[in-house]
Design a protein around this nucleic acid. Structure first.
Lengths: 164, 164
DNA sequence: AATTTAAGTCAACAATGCTTACTTATTTTT
DNA sequence: AAAAATAAGTAAGCATTGTTGACTTAAATT
C-alpha cells in the first residue's frame, strides 16, 4: 500500500518483483473469467460455448468477413471453426452467401435472430467492461489498453489494424 | 488519436462509445491468448493443458493448500480437478499429504520436479507480463490492475485477499 | 450415535481444440 | 488450355476440460 504512491510515470522499473507480477497474472486469470461469465450464461441457453460467441462477435464486427479471414483471426483449425459455423448456420443465426467477386469464397452474415443474439451477448459483456472502465477512470483505461496491446503476440496484431 | 489527449484523470466518462468498448473486448481476447501462449507450448510437451497449469500455479503460490481450497479458487467441479490432480500426482509433479490437524484433508505440495515445471511455466509467463509492463510504464500498470480488479466477479475477489 | 465434511471415484456427456486426408469448385498461373 | 493454387467443406479419430449425479471411505463434529 505505502509503496503504491510512486506515480512518477517515468521509466523506472518498479513493481516488477516476482510477487507483483504473480499478482498481475492471477488478476488476469480471474478477470478473464469475469469477462466471459455474463455471455457464458446466455450461451448456455443455446448449448453454445465461447467458440460460438467468438464467431458471432467477428461476424458482427467485421463487414463482409469470409471463412478464411475468420480462421486467421481466431487462429483455430478449419475443422473447429466449421463445426461451430455449421451449427450457427443450421440454427439460422448465420448465413453464408457466395462472394460475387470470388465465388470460391463465402461471406458470412448474421441473420435477424443472429443479430439479436450477438447484440445481447455484446451488451452484457460491454456493460461489464464499461462499468470496470468507469470505476477505474480514464487514465486507468488508457494504461489497461496499453498493457493489453503489449501482451498480444506480434503475429496477431495485424488483426486489429483493419478494424476501426 | 487526437482524442487521446484528454488525460485529465477526472471522472468524465469519455472513450465509452460502443466502438471503443468493443476494441477493449477484442484486446482482452487477443491479450489473453498471448498471455497463455508461452506456457501452452511447454505444457504441450507433457500432454498437459491449462487446467494443469492453473493447478500447479496455485499449489506453488498458496502455502499448505488443500483440495477444497483449490476447488474454491478454480471454481470447477470436483471431477475436473480430480482428473487433473490424479495425473499430476501419478507423474510425480504433485504430492498429496494428509493434514495432521485434520486427517480428512490432504495438503498439496510440489515435488522437486513439480517445482521445476511450475517455475518454468511461471518464468515464461512472468517474462511476457514483465515486458508488457515495462513497455507500458508504471502508470499504465496501475491502470491495468485497476481495470482487471473491476472485471473480476465480486464472488471471487475473496480469493485474492489471503494472498500477499 | 448421527451427521457433516473432505476427498476420491465411476459413468456419461458436451464443447472445443487438434491432425490427416480427401473432395469440390473456382481462380490464378504457367 | 492445362496445371497449380485457393476457398470451403467434410470424415474419422483423438485429447483436454468442463459438466452432472450417485456413491464410497474416512475422519471430525455435533
Amino acid at each position: 500500500m505505502a509503496d503504491n504512491n510512486n506515480r512518477s510515470g517515468g521509466n523506472k522499473l518498479l513493481y516488477l518483483t516476482d510477487k507483483e507480477i504473480t499478482k498481475g497474472i492471477e488478476a488476469m486469470m480471474f478477470a478473464y473469467r469475469g469477462f466471459t461469465s455474463d455471455p457464458d450464461e446466455i450461451l448456455a441457453n443455446y448449448g453454445y460455448g465461447r467458440a460460438h460467441h467468438r464467431a458471432l462477435h467477428f461476424i458482427q464486427n467485421r463487414e463482409n468477413i469470409n471463412v478464411t479471414e475468420l480462421l486467421r483471426i481466431l487462429a483455430i483449425s478449419k475443422q473447429s471453426l466449421n463445426r461451430v459455423l455449421r451449427r450457427l448456420i443450421s440454427d439460422s443465426f448465420v448465413e453464408a452467401r457466395p462472394n460475387p467477386a470470388d465465388r470460391r469464397s463465402k461471406l458470412l452474415y448474421l441473420t435477424d435472430s443472429g443479430k439479436m443474439l450477438a447484440d445481447e451477448l455484446a451488451r452484457v459483456q460491454m456493460n461489464r467492461v464499461r462499468m470496470a472502465y468507469r470505476a477505474a477512470g480514464n487514465e486507468a483505461v488508457i494504461g489497461f489498453r496499453q498493457v493489453l496491446e503489449n501482451l498480444i503476440s506480434p503475429e496477431y496484431t495485424r488483426q486489429e489494424q483493419d478494424y476501426d
